[in-house]
Write a protein that binds this DNA or RNA. Structure first.
Length: 772
DNA sequence: GGACTCCGTATACC
DNA sequence: ACGGGTATACGGAGTCC
């Protein structure tokens, strides 16, 4: 039962691919060592329906089933053919529009229907089949592909639509040691492409991998194939890749193409990296070198031909394989669970993934499905700041997976979930996560297990967000509020107990506390005892742990702080301190301020400031130091309309885009700087594109940038006495010795919880600290 | 011309 | 084209004195 909830109710193992063969048939490919066999399985396209009257007059063959329970969608309707299903939808649409003032234009507007628009997902939900069951990652046959292309002289990049551009080499490799470079023997681009088709079919991979696979590699190959009238038949049914009509738009870039290949799955390493959430900043531009460094991959130059493009191409494949070995196993593991193909496992949000589990169970149990509650805002986590300043010997303790723990502890699943899919699956996914985490802890060389348990952690944490997800079928705002309220109570209890023991709580956020232990309790052992003491007042399921200990902690504002670790590395958190929109000079200035303050090197800070100030005044800097880069989030016409209707302020990036009369679209980045002479100019009226700046005739607004400089340094005013602050951030020369007396200030900003809380009877404290 | 508030947008934390 | 709330920063517009 639980097994079926998590892994699906179908015993079929080792499925490595799917495609439809007819309106009601799905072909599945099953790998047995080196061979792949296929078989066809019927399926019946379906949707959920609220009221059966809507299909009373539908003529084509269909099956309807009254479902158990009292949830909103009372019926499931199934069809022989995909096309019949859509015909029925259109009939319902017409009927609905006749009796309803608000006109629906597609099934998505029909509140009385719940329909999954994707055949493979429907098939997997209905049959209970999932991919890759009983398979190890290594058993999958994965092919990597990279291109080397010719660029017409004078052009920025290669364009497959330009006839003078072309593919020069294609590197192919797989996870079983195969390696080849097409274009060495092949004399023409056409020959390369033909050979490519032949090899892919011979290898018959389950997965094709590449860096920028969809928008670059496949798009390029397909465009060139068109030129030569070649059919790029690499599907398992000898079909060509299909462009998916409505690919999920992934964050920043909106013109994403997405292909599918019959019977195989495609893995674009860029998508794997996008999913890799916490470190997104590092891969901001998906610069391949940055990523390689981060994942410790070294591009090897062929010693004979250091910059041989063919060899570089092969190296790129190795890079793809390297990233894939680290990040893909997590998604393969998830594909064993969720009724979704690999592409969807990678692209869909965690909320949509966990919902697919619930829906599968409800379909399987023939149980009525709820509809989302009307959106309502709920309370969130508790955040507070008690001190501003710099502190030594700071500990961070936090509750591991607090929200999921509370959900399980108090059974806070959705009210509508009569089959208990929410709680049951959360419990099981938690078990899987712990299992993977322990496996990793046993052998830390198995890095892929680290990423895997991180991804499962994200899935588990999603359960809370899902309760308040406005599109979640099983959302339950009341339960979501309950969870966060209980979380607040737990955090406040922790704070209370630290303060009660005269510890200094500096700042808290949701489930974690930064604090300085009480005087004379500063050893790790003592802190462990303190944690144990606090734990005795919390439910035993709530796992409060000592996460970290820091040499120094700079507290600035809520959610904004910096830490100095014991290895002397600095980490900065919070948009007020590290926002990526700042000019480069500002970013570096803030970093230096934090570094020098944490290390108490005030004279060096003074020198740094003086030097920077000087450089600005004398234009001794580069355009890169002071440009701002903004991404156009809205189409120009929308911006323009909003301005006309007074619904939005003017913005320099958009104004420049309009003034230039060039084509700009959503996702484009605009780099600009501010001109003029007055520090208070309106940026949108006084700006130029970055490439208009001429170092020989610098026309940036020095007064404006000096004002910016002042704004940045003012952030640090609160850490010093007035005199000290003015001395450090001045252009006057001072003697080094005079900085030795400077002391950092701390400011108390929040009231202790213990002083606010009235004495509670339960709070009787035993003295646990030994006398010595 | 400040000081102040309000608003929309952007970014970050957990 | 979509998990949530809590938070800060910034630019600009409007208001008051």
């Amino acid at each position: 039962m639980i097994e079926a909830l998590i892994y699906g109710h179908n015993p079929q193992v080792r499925v490595v691919g799917l495609h439809t063969v007819a309106d009601n048939k799905m072909r599945i490919y099953v790998r047995e060592d080196n061979t792949v066999k296929n078989s066809d399985i019927n399926f019946y396209p379906f949707f959920f329906l609220q009221n059966i009257q809507f299909i009373e007059n539908f003529k084509r063959k269909h099956y309807k089933k009254k479902l158990e329970g009292n949830n909103f969608f009372q019926y499931i309707v199934a069809f022989e053919k995909w096309s019949d299903m859509w015909e029925c939808v259109h009939q319902i649409l017409d009927l609905y529009n006749k009796s309803n003032p608000t006109q629906a234009t597609s099934y998505e507007d029909l509140p009385i229907i719940y329909l999954i628009p994707d055949q493979q997902t429907q098939f997997l939900i209905q049959t209970g089949i999932t991919h890759y069951k009983n398979m190890e990652f290594e058993e999958l046959h994965r092919l990597q592909i990279s291109l080397d292309k010719l660029i017409t002289t004078g052009k920025k990049s290669s364009d497959p639509r330009r006839e003078s551009d072309k593919i020069t080499f294609i590197a192919l490799s797989d996870n079983k040691g195969f390696e080849t470079i097409l274009g060495k023997k092949e004399k023409s681009e056409k020959a390369i492409l033909q050979k490519l088709i032949q090899i892919i079919n011979e290898i018959n991979p389950d997965i094709i991998e590449g860096f920028d696979l969809h928008n670059d590699i496949l798009y390029y190959i397909l465009t060139r194939c068109e030129l030569y009238d070649i059919n790029f038949t690499i599907g398992r049914d000898e079909s060509i890749p299909k462009l998916i009509e409505n690919p999920l738009q992934i964050r920043e870039s909106l013109q994403n193409k997405k292909y599918s290949i019959a019977g195989r799955n495609l893995v674009d390493v860029i998508n794997l990296l996008q999913e890799y959430d916490p470190y997104k900043r590092i891969f901001y531009n998906y610069d391949i070198k940055t990523i390689a460094d981060y994942f410790k991959f070294e591009f090897k130059n062929n010693t004979e031909y250091p910059s041989d493009p063919a060899n570089l191409c092969l190296e790129k494949n190795k890079f793809v394989n390297h990233i894939s070995n680290l990040l893909l196993p997590s998604f393969i593991e998830q594909a064993k669970i969720f009724p979704l193909n690999l592409g969807k496992i990678i692209d869909l949000s965690p909320s949509q993934k966990i919902e697919s589990l619930f829906v599968r169970r409800y379909v399987n149990q023939k149980y009525s499905l709820p509809t989302p509650q009307t959106p309502k805002s709920i309370s969130g986590g508790y955040t507070d700041l008690f001190y501003i300043g710099v502190f030594d010997n700071v500990y961070y303790i936090d509750v591991e997976s607090m929200y999921p723990t509370l959900i399980l502890l108090h059974n806070l699943g959705p009210n509508s979930d009569n089959l208990n899919a929410f709680i049951d699956s959360l419990r099981e996914l938690t078990k899987i996560r712990i299992l993977k985490k322990n496996e990793f802890l046993e052998n830390k060389n198995l890095k892929h297990l680290f990423y895997m348990q991180e991804d499962f952690k994200v899935l588990i944490n999603t359960y809370y967000g899902y309760l308040a997800y406005y599109k979640g079928l099983f959302n339950d705002y009341e339960k979501a509020s309950k969870v966060s309220e209980m979380g607040q109570e737990i955090l406040k209890k922790i704070i209370y107990h630290i303060q009660f023991h005269n510890g200094t709580v500096i700042e808290v956020d949701t489930d974690g506390v930064f604090f300085v232990p009480p005087y004379k309790m500063e050893s790790d052992d003592d802190v462990d005892k303190l944690i144990k003491e606090i734990k005795s007042y919390l439910p035993s399921e709530v796992n409060l742990i000592l996460s970290n200990k820091y040499k120094k902690f700079l507290s600035y504002k809520k959610k904004n702080y910096a830490i100095l670790r014991y290895d002397d590395k600095i980490q900065i958190k919070g948009s007020a301190l590290i926002s990526k929109n700042l000019e480069k000079f500002g970013k570096i200035l803030i970093q230096k301020c934090i570094e020098y303050i944490l290390k108490e090197e005030f004279y060096d800070l003074h020198l740094f400031y003086k030097n920077l100030h000087n450089n600005i005044v004398n234009h001794r800097w580069n355009i890169q130091d002071f440009i701002r880069v903004e991404t156009l989030k809205d189409p120009i016409y929308k911006y323009f309309n909003d301005i006309q209707k007074d619904q939005r302020n003017r913005n320099a990036a958009y104004e420049l885009a309009i003034k230039s009369r060039k084509e700009f679209s959503v996702g484009d980045k605009i780099a600009y700087y501010v001109t003029g002479t007055n520090a208070n100019v309106k940026a949108y009226d006084n700006c130029k594109f970055a490439d208009e700046w001429d170092p020989n005739f610098p026309d940036e607004n020095t007064a404006y940038y000096l004002k910016r400089l002042e704004e940045y340094t003012n952030k640090f005013e609160i850490f010093f006495t007035k005199e000290d602050f003015l001395k450090i951030f001045s252009t006057t020369d001072y003697k080094k010795e005079s900085f030795k007396t400077i002391r950092l200030l701390t400011t108390k900003v929040g009231k202790d919880i213990s002083s606010e809380t009235e004495e509670k009877d339960e709070l009787e404290y035993k003295i646990w600290l030994s006398e010595d």
